[in-house]
Design a protein around this nucleic acid. Sequence first.
DNA 1: ATGTAGGTTGAGGAA
DNA 2: ATTCCTCAACCTACA
Length: 474
Amino acid sequence: MAHVCIHWFRKGLRLHDNPALVYALKECKELYPVFILDPYLYNTQVGINRWRFLLGALKDLDCSLRKLNSRLFVLKGKPEDVFPKLFDKWKVTKLTYEYDTEPYSLSRDEKVTSLAKEHGVDVSYKISHTLYNTERIMEENDGKPPLTFKRLQAIVQKLGPPKKPIPAPTLENMKDVETHCSEENEKKYGIPTAEELGLDLTSLGEELFPGGEQEALRRLDEHMKRTRKHSDPPVSLHGQLLWREFFYTCSVGIPNFNKMEGNPVCTQVDWDTNPECLAAWREARTGFPFIDAIMTQLRQEGWIHHLARHAVACFLTRGDLWISWEEGEKVFEELLLDGDWALNAGNWQWLSASAFFHQFFRVYSPVAFGKKTDKNGDYIKKYLPLLKKFPPQYIYEPWKAPRSVQQAAGCIVGKDYPHPIVQHEQISKKNIQRMKEAYAKRSSDSNESPSKKQGVKRKAPSVIDLLQKKKRKV
DNA sequence: ATGTAGGTTGAGGAA
DNA sequence: ATTCCTCAACCTACA
């Protein structure tokens, strides 16, 4: 008996390396590739650049599906409201999707699965968003997520190489499969335009990073060709994939992973509430050209270099402004095209020395760090053209330039460009002391006995142990 | 168990 | 230009 199948696209907007899609085509007579604009995910915290990226990816996916005599069906609404109607209307017998480990996704998928069962629809998912099954990684580590990269590497070594990506379906695979591409459906389920979504894309600059599978594969290909000698993990591309796996596994095994409170691996810090400083950081007016240039690029282009992320994250949190990493997390989520729930939360904890990374006395200087690789300040000049006439010796610290130099540069600090929001040298020293106190408190909190050192070692993993036991019962 | 090594990329100065 | 040391001293993994 052949199936009427919905394949539900969510994160993996691609045809290759999509085992759930291939599974959907088995014994299938009708296929409905579906994407849902879920108000929970897309109404809040999505910057206009990310919208453009998403629409591009959907168009690319639709285009690829049409080459297979199929198409993408785009719907709006809560998935638990949308699916029951589709099940009835299309007489669906099977639903497939790629497994997604985010807490919201898990609860959403659980709801949809039980609705599907009520409608007599078979549900299948495949793991292909991560290299490995994150549960399997934890199994190899006594049921806990590995908390160091080295440990993850050792586990992965034991598990062997991940499955190779499978090719995209071909016309041959689709020969017995039909998709109803009627004129009426065209209007009803088409990809919405920016205007229909109330977005003004004309305010955006050039699209430097188009969304979609074809562009992604092209970039990967280009990278692999360009890189003659591939470095080793952790800094290689391979290493980056393992870092991704590392944070994904942590995000599955550690409760409240995107928050400080209730997160057992996160050091509890008395961050300040400081809306003015937060706004200055977000809006690129901290008075530190390197920081402001990075925040400008982030807003304009939706992508910034890895080390640039380090610099602004350290500045917002433990380095200078002493604002919670959760605030930075929200801003990155809104603006980064490559924003990802697990990686965002993991890296913010890393950079704020709240978890994984603990050498809080190593503070990135908002002046010196950029100078290391860009003495002339070309990067600053590109994103803050207001400062481009400053000579290299002052471009990272324009407030130190004599009045005459500022006048010659056509930019007066305090008038055309802000004064530095903090005095880095003093404030970072003070903040290191505050971090020290937070760590000391963490040690004493998790340890009743007077011998602190031992207590930390014993108590820390036992918290996770308890949580794991709880989980197993459920 | 207790000590030690290492931790994806700090900064600044000396050699 | 590159490497090493010091600053002050964190955590996790492993022997």
